[in-house]
Design a protein around this nucleic acid. Sequence first.
DNA 1: GGTAGACCTGGACGC
DNA 2: GCGTCCAGGTCTACC
Length: 292
Amino acid sequence: MELTLLARQPFIFHHAVRSHGWYQLAPFEYDEQAGVLHYVLRLGSGKVRELRLNAAPGGVKLETGGKLTRAEVAELEQKVTWMLGLEMDFTDFYAAARGEPKLAHVTEKAYGRVLRSPTLFEDVLKTILTTNTLWAATKRMNLNLIEAYGEPEPASGKKAFPTPAAIAAGSPEALRETVRVGYRAPSIYELAERVASGEMPLEALKTSHLPTLELRKELLKIKGVGPYAAANLLMILGRSDFIPVDSWALKIVSHEWHGGEPVTPAQVEAHFEKWGNFKGLAFWFWDWSYQG
DNA sequence: GGTAGACCTGGACGC
DNA sequence: GCGTCCAGGTCTACC
């Protein structure tokens, strides 16, 4: 099966994919040379399919194998549209960025979209796996999680990201010992249980009209989600009023404006205060002098 | 509201 | 091969 999905312009597939590190986290896999983003998706019907996405005139070409019903194709379209933010409009951000040399590139590069997973559950778990650890460990824990609880695509054997029910059917001990998530195990297990039981309607937050501050409060109620993780998830949800301040953010801001001297999260926020609702976007796509 | 210390893993390093 | 140190956000207790 093959189809093309149109994106609101401007849209550059490669820049949408490379917007942050998510493309390196399974079940995403990005073949940079070929410009193809792979993703193993579990459909609502339970079928698991590997998707192949690449740039097409005006948007994205989507390919996958095996027969699908009309409803499954519609689900695929809806999920890919969400993952790549195909309908998102950044006109106001581009207008605000005009005149700022450090953001001069954003319109030309069609920056603004942030690659996301098909479910918020997956993005919350992945965000928790980025906290208090190094990127290599995040990738490994995520891989272990998929290996332990993901369902395989029949043809390739590649596994999809686990459902909340699959993780909830395990135990915090298994998460700690097999998936090696350490002290994060109780938080991850509790989240999976609450989402699987319907107690926490996490996916509803994707279309929530709550003011950003209220949405942030909801995210902070999740165990393992603090200020950094909440800001990261807000960015994923298309709200950029907060900056995900991690150790890297402190470092680049310190080099940008403070001669390498230590800075606080409040100072990071202060530097971007004037960008208001676009604070997170301005920070995320800033042309930083320090590259590490 | 601010701060200190514990929570874990795995890589780097010294012996 | 073993032991020690370190990096990385969140949570809890305490002031």
